[in-house]
Amino acid sequence: MRSDEELMQAYIGGDAAAFSELFERYGPMMLRIMRRQLRDDDAQELVQQTFLQMHRARNDFDTSRKLRPWLMTIAYNLKRELFRRRGRKPEAALEVEPEAEDRGDIVERKSEAARLRRALATLPDGQREVIEMHWFEELSFPEVAEILGLSTSAVKVRAHRGYKALRATLSKDVTGGGGPP
């Protein structure tokens, strides 16, 4: 299997099939990231913009570097710009209300997920982004640092503070509760 960087190099060289493979690898992940904070149409629009920007910037890509942080930087910059344009913070969107027929574990999990989303939305942007990228999208700390233009230690500090803030927020919600679920 070709690496992301090999695929990007092939795409820069004119191999359209390489773009399809990159879309298959990153499209689903990006859509999930965007849908975590945005309505579906906005999330789709941002992923569409990200791939368009990836195409336009392909000749800027340094094939000796990793593709993932490069692409994620584009996606996060577009997302921030959208929030900035709308003059609001990311919302705790996409909360799904439990349906009447849902029972037991499902209801509890949905309720916990909604609680966690609300708690995430209360974090400062810098901490929330680090937590999303590192813990939810499994980017390494150096990759997150590259995306945000920070040092790795600064990113670790944000992750640590964000985690502690999350624990505190979630503990307030539950009597005798612990940290994140």
Binding site: R36, A113, R167, P181
Partner: peptide, 11 residues
């Protein structure tokens, strides 16, 4: 904790 959170949110 965060692995559990990721599973919950579907990341």
């Amino acid at each position: 904790d965060m692995r559990a959170a990721r599973e919950l949110l579907g990341g």
